[in-house]
């Protein structure tokens, strides 16, 4: 994909995010500008404290930049209020967390449908979508199981299905394989590859090198700035190879 044909999905424009930690002012993101294009699969890497978690929170609209602007799918978030940001999250973003973060009192099907529940105008085919996604991640026969009855890998599959149910513009994964054994981690990474092949935009935060290498592009952070950008280490077509 040539640079000119990129369609921006997540656009950070001079984003700075500062925290106050006791007496000190910590600059987690420092005048950060970057664009994630449609259909791209990025790994964000860096040591702890490099700002990758803050970047993910800003990308996920759960955190707001202290200054600068962030556009999701062309929508500027700088002037949105809390409700509008929430609606944006439920429509445009999908989250996959390290510790799965399923809701314990809901079954698999209900967990997958949670993002739809919070949309102002939820789609009528929500349940059908959720069933298809459960099938897609190989859990069609466990729809009425509670999270506690599933293995870690299965829980993460539910979480991925949940992240896709709202047909998001951007899927964000935070150390998505961090809690899994290596075999299961590979299965999950295979699943991400498949999603990438289907044309999803994925941003995966990780500190594990071998996980980062599976992604199409790698963005390295250091002290809240871009350290390096490695494009096209793997092509989309070659993802399954």
């Amino acid at each position: 994909m040539s640079e000119a044909a990129r369609v921006p999905v997540a656009e950070l424009i001079g984003v700075t995010r500062e925290y106050r930690m006791g007496q000190n002012l910590v600059r987690a993101l420092d005048d950060f500008s970057f664009t994630f294009g449609r259909g791209e699969y990025w790994a964000v890497m860096g040591s702890s404290g490099s700002g990758k978690s803050t970047l993910l929170n800003v990308l996920g609209c759960v955190d707001r930049p202290t200054s600068g602007d962030y556009k999701v799918d062309g929508v500027s978030t700088a002037r949105l209020d809390d409700d509008e940001l929430s609606e944006l999250r439920s429509r445009k973003l999908g989250f996959v967390f390290q510790s799965y973060n399923l809701i314990p009192q809901l079954n698999v099907l209900e967990n997958i449908m949670v993002p739809l529940f919070y949309q102002d105008d939820p789609p009528d085919d929500g349940e059908e979508r959720a069933r298809k996604l459960a099938e897609r991640v190989g859990l069609a026969r466990r729809l009425d199981h509670r999270p506690a009855e599933l293995s870690g890998g299965q829980q993460q599959r539910v979480a991925i299905a949940r992240a896709l149910v709202n047909q998001p513009a951007l899927v964000l994964a935070d150390e998505a394989t961090g809690n899994l054994d290596s075999a299961t981690a590979l299965e999950i990474l295979d699943l991400f590859d498949e999603l990438h092949a289907e044309g999803r935009t994925i941003v995966l935060v990780t500190h594990e090198l071998d996980v980062g290498e599976r992604a199409q592009h790698v963005l390295r952070l250091k002290d809240g700035r871009i350290e390096s950008v490695a494009r096209g280490q793997r092509s989309a077509a070659g993802a399954r190879a």
């Binding site: 929430s86 439920s90 809701i103 314990p104 993002p115």
Partner: peptide
């Protein structure tokens, strides 16, 4: 608290 965080991240508004 964590459940609240998850729900908020997944798009729950304050009134939800």
């Amino acid at each position: 608290t964590r459940e609240i965080g998850i729900r908020r991240a997944l798009g729950a508004k304050r009134h939800h």
